[in-house]
């Protein structure tokens, strides 16, 4: 049961990524050129509605479907790791035109070359894990 819910959430999200065109390299290129509002609208609405949802969860101390109180962990305070890591991520996002979610969606949509991107992203994660202690965080 639980497994099928996760799978369904993924299917729903994958369809949304494809149908919103957020999974399209063209939309990412257009976004970084500030030539359309589309991507900013998507992220903007998701964040504004998201903020309201999180505030409501906190205000009404909502419990999960399984009766456990929903908690939020504050992210570790730092500037370096978020800024440096973010910049590296952004360079790749603009080059490949896909962030991790859309990579999976695009494989399903029939773009098998994204398997190269996923394999390479997994390798990038591996290299990060290997040299993590040598990087400023």
């Amino acid at each position: 049961m639980k497994n099928s819910i996760y799978l369904s959430i993924g299917i729903f999200f994958g369809i949304t990524m494809y149908k919103s065109e957020a999974a399209s390299w063209f939309r990412i290129y257009e976004m970084f050129n500030f030539q359309a509002f589309h991507m900013y609208g998507i992220i903007g609405v998701a964040v504004v509605v998201g903020i309201i949802m999180v505030q409501l969860i906190k205000k009404f101390q909502l419990k999960s479907f399984y009766g456990v109180p929903i908690t939020f962990n504050d992210k570790e305070k730092s500037v370096k790791r978020y800024l440096f890591g973010g910049i590296i991520f952004g360079l790749g996002w603009a080059l490949a035109g896909a962030c991790p979610g859309p990579m999976f969606t695009l494989v399903g949509a029939g773009f098998y070359s994204l398997l190269i991107v996923i394999a390479s992203a997994t390798f990038g994660t591996y290299v990060y894990g290997k040299i993590k202690n040598k990087l400023p965080h």
Partner: peptide, 26 residues
């Protein structure tokens, strides 16, 4: 391009502790 792009996304996402979904949305 695909290999370098993917590598940077994977490396950068973990370095930053999240990607578009983890940071920009959550």
């Amino acid at each position: 391009i695909l290999i370098v792009g993917g590598f940077l996304v994977g490396f950068g996402a973990r370095y930053a502790g999240g990607c578009t979904s983890g940071h920009a949305i959550s």
